[in-house]
Design a protein around this nucleic acid. Structure first.
Lengths: 222, 222, 222, 222
DNA sequence: AATGAATGAGGATTCATTCAT
DNA sequence: TATGAATGAATCCTCATTCAT
């Protein structure tokens, strides 16, 4: 937990520090990120960082949580709860992809919680990251089932898990070098992946979700 | 590239070293893994490791590649190329899940290539890991399309990407603390995830793939 | 190049560090000098040294340059440019010998640039050490030739080279074990060379230089 | 002292080992020379070297002594003791210069005994290197004084010392990067020092020695 | 005698964190 | 509160030497 001091410093300074920290951690990983370099990049005294945070871990956790808040706002921000699940899913995926393009560092940080040696962070972060989305998706599926817009034989928990899984994969493909190369390998494209390369799988992914959720169309036709 | 020396030492010793290295790297991550501790765990002299490998990075790469070979053998080992895609996919997923349970360290290492700061490894490993599977899946889809067992309007590249993506997620859920907690959160289970917790999503995942591949049955019935 | 930090620490501390470094390097040579031991001897934290210098090489270069400055001040310090060359040469040799007795470590460091494996240091140090002295001696010989106090058929460049060569040998005999033993061997003295042992060759050396420079007196008398 | 084993191996092998050792030590210095690299360069097993020599120091000493023998043979080889001192000195300087060009590694090794941290080698080598030359020169001067070809007021010990000093400086200028750069600086030449650059100072050096030894020419005129 | 793998002490350097100013 | 110099534990890697084959 950051020290109270963090709240009292100039907002631009705080912003600078948190942004640079996010970038540096996303670039190097937790271990290799150097507090001295962070201080330099953020134009903040090395000692000052320790006035705001207990230690490197504390800073890391805060930066991750901060990123999650930003991510949530960016993705769920313009979402109208009255929309049907199809529109919501599309909104989430498109906004998520945009956020990943604009702030890859936060997505990288999120993905990095699953890296080797990061279990102590997963223990503290994963639940609080996943719960809101999990709850939202599960509730959404349930209410859409009641509305007859989602197959009633779908386990809402598995459905939610599935949607979120695909979401993670899409984001990963946008921000991680490994997933980018893999995407190129599968799609047989070359060079830096342009947005055009990502759109078809994104569309298809959304399509697959639709296919999964939609009540058997045969009954309609029947 | 390991030094030639590595080939000439006692096989049990080599095995011990590579296994312990895989475990340690999977446990701590590349940076935090300590060469001295590895030497201790593997009952090998610190200096000896440097007789076999140029440096820590060289060792890491070799351990990853070694893990990939083992993984490929375990998963594709018993696979009969004459099987139809549904049987092959099922085989791959079940064997993959078994391998992940028996050798989580190698799966962790694979996933870790996408971690922050590991880009230099991705640059060297990703392609060689992904290509064989990508090719196999793409060719399989194409031949199954010709056989009429897979929808002809499915882009084989996207289909292959999709199958592999789900495969990765399943494995990740089995070996990464972050993905385990996330799974618990979605499935509303508690404690150490038992195999029983994993089976339904695994089954469902295979089901979704079937659904994706299968030619529209409506038309048949039409 | 030392880091700017070096300029801001307490002068006594800087002095202590530089002195001990000069002594240690002179005693052990570059390779065998141990940074940890230096830190201990200078009562400075090991890490601190790396706050002041990029690395061992950087420190070594700085210590050498520092020694050169000290040496130049000690030797050329009280030198009056209006003196004739005979007086100047005598001054230089006597002051040089005194400096070598008081600060053998710096003379050892200077001589050590010519040691095996030190070429990279020679490449960076030699020119800047030698140029000022070379220029001074050459100009001095030229002006003394015009004044008729030095033989006009002497090539000023060779004359300067010669004077400096003898100077180096004198210093070497004062600070290097090898040259000391050699001196004992030639002079048939025993035990630690006392100042008395050095004076005759020093005198003779100065004498030889006089002999070399002096216009042929016979012609004058003739 | 080398082990007796050294005498029993194939002469070409011994030669290869000693040559490569001389080169490597001359190139890197004692500390930085790597026994493994030596073994590789000489195509000799690392362990074998320890069958011939007690340890690195023992090898170093032997290589130095070996070099001295070679040097002595090359320089004093064709010297006729009946020659007068002027001819002998010229012979020594010219042969020494040639040897330095053909085998710079041995001259470097000799000079290196005066390097920092090499005192323990000086203690063991210097005397045995210098004594024969010192004795020869002193005796030569004495007999030439009796023959009236050398000034009788010259202290033979100082004369010998002086001749040898200049000899060392000439050799150093031929083999040491530091002394080469210094020579360029004094002679105002550029680039790799060619033989032509060295000849004038060599000639002049011999000239100075003549000047020093020759009985007062006044008597001739008298 | 020859070999080269094994050993582990040793040494340069890094970096999170502290603390005096 | 801000600063950045000071600290020393930690870590990668080297290399002389040993020793089993």
């Amino acid at each position: 937990m950051p020290k109270p001091t963090l709240d009292f410093i100039a907002p631009e300074k705080r912003e600078r520090l948190l942004c640079e920290a996010a970038r540096l951690f996303a670039e190097r990983g937790f271990e290799s990120a150097d507090m001295a370099e962070l201080a330099r990049r953020a134009s903040v005294a090395k000692g000052s960082i320790y006035n705001y945070f207990e230690n490197k871990e504390d800073l890391y956790l805060h930066v991750c949580r901060d990123g999650l808040t930003r991510s949530r706002e960016a993705v769920f921000g313009g979402l109208d709860p009255s929309w049907d699940i199809y529109r919501q899913v599309e909104h989430i995926f498109l906004r998520g992809a945009r956020f990943a393009r604009e702030h890859p560092e936060y997505v990288r940080l999120y993905l990095n919680v699953s890296a080797a040696g990061m279990e102590r962070f997963a223990e503290r972060l994963t639940m609080e990251v996943e719960k809101p989305t999990a709850d939202h998706l599960k509730n959404l599926i349930r209410s859409e089932q009641r509305a007859g817009r989602v197959r009633s034989d779908l386990d809402p928990r598995l459905g939610a898990l599935f949607i979120n899984s695909l979401y993670i994969l899409v984001l990963a493909s946008l921000v991680s070098r490994h997933f980018q190369i893999r995407l190129q390998e599968y799609l047989e494209t070359e060079g830096e992946p342009r947005e055009a390369d990502v759109r078809p799988p994104l569309r298809q992914t959304i399509g697959v979700i639709h296919q999964l959720l939609r009540p058997a169309s045969g009954t309609v036709g029947g």
